[in-house]
């Protein structure tokens, strides 16, 4: 018979496995990769986690609710381009400005969130209203939204973002850029929402068993639509941050981020079947991926290694998930 204390320890380790893995990876890289162990590199890792990390929050919420949103990468690219077109002064930028100048910050953010939310609402309507498969509906959005980016920009880029916005990408607090603090705040906020509020609990219940949740009197359809709107709006936020980082937008901005976000979500312990997952684990997954990317950059290894390691990590995460499940069954 296992003592409850030992059981708690094992549960804690299982719940935070990805954080332990992250610490182990950081230690190994610090000891073996030249120039890795320094504050600047750790700050870079946190900064680089910003964009994929923010996208992964919305994606994780959708997956926890038992759905999927493949459009998040393209939504981020679209909002970056919209912000770029409106508030950049060169390329395809129209250079809108306000008096006082700082107004551009809340206005551009509202536009980015709004654009993302509208596409999220459309996805939600297709899935809930028309009963379309979420994978197919959001795959279509992934394609047409990227097409819209090219159509809006004509394949050209927008440069020279308004200085009031750029300052968010340049200023640091505790050596970490403000954009990264936005991501950290998002993870903290949504982790709280998902773990401690009725909304979060209901979303997790829907992912676990939507029929039982419906019979418990919870408005399943409405909540599912809200998860899509949230995923879209959060992707919009990621696009806003990307535009700030890039001082504008190019038509291929954010390409490949969807798969990194998926990898982070899976590595972070979110079950693709829905109903299981915690956002802090997702953040650890994103940090883990960025740590590996950075190590590969510093070692000067060909980029193919990143993709091979990424694929291997995702496989390992799925295997670990299976192992965790069997350990939990034995504990029960």
């Amino acid at each position: 018979m296992m003592s409850s204390r030992r059981r708690d320890v094992i549960e804690f380790l299982l719940n935070n496995l990805v954080w332990l893995l992250l610490v182990a990876v950081l230690v190994v890289f610090s000891l073996t990769v030249p120039n890795y162990f320094q504050i600047g590199i750790f700050a870079n890792i946190i900064e680089q986690s910003t964009y994929v990390g923010v996208i992964a929050i919305g994606l994780a919420i959708c997956i926890i609710a038992g759905n999927m949103d493949l459009s998040v990468e393209s939504v981020a690219a679209l909002t970056a381009m919209v912000v770029g077109i409106l508030f950049c002064s060169r390329g395809v930028g129209l250079g809108y400005s306000f008096s006082p100048e700082w107004l551009v910050v809340p206005i551009s953010l509202a536009i980015a969130l709004g654009v993302g939310a509208v596409i999220g609402a459309l996805n939600g309507w297709l899935v809930v209203g028309l009963k379309m498969n979420a994978f197919i509906a959001t795959l279509a959005s992934y394609i047409w939204v990227r097409g819209l980016v090219v159509a809006l920009s004509g394949g050209r880029s927008a440069q020279d973002l308004a200085p009031s916005l750029r300052v968010i990408g340049i200023q640091t607090v505790l050596n970490i850029p403000l954009t990264a603090w936005v991501a950290i705040a998002c993870f903290a906020g949504f982790s709280f929402v998902m773990a401690k509020t009725p909304f979060g609990r209901h979303v997790t219940m829907i992912g676990g068993n939507p029929v039982a949740t419906f019979r418990a009197g919870i408005k399943v359809d409405r909540l599912v639509v809200i998860t899509f709107v949230l995923a879209g709006a959060i992707a919009g936020l990621a696009g806003w941050l990307l535009a700030i980082r890039s001082s504008g937008a190019t038509a291929n901005l954010g390409t490949g981020m969807l798969f990194n976000a998926f990898a982070a979500v899976v590595i972070g312990g979110v079950s693709l079947k829905g109903g299981i997952g915690r956002l802090p684990g997702v953040y650890a997954g994103v940090l883990l991926l960025s740590s590996i990317h950075t190590a590969i950059n510093l070692m000067g290894l060909p980029a193919h290694y990143t993709q091979m390691i990424l694929g291997g990590l995702v496989l390992a995460a799925v295997l670990l998930d299976t192992v965790k499940l069997s350990i939990r069954q034995r504990l029960a």
Partner: peptide, 25 residues
């Protein structure tokens, strides 16, 4: 010469490489 690729020609990947290398080198 330190040579690193920006996967998929994606601009933010290039930014990441430059940011890392400015710290390491």
């Amino acid at each position: 010469i330190i040579s690193l690729p920006a996967l998929q020609w994606e601009a933010s990947n290039a930014g990441t490489i430059v940011a890392d290398q400015l710290v390491a080198n």
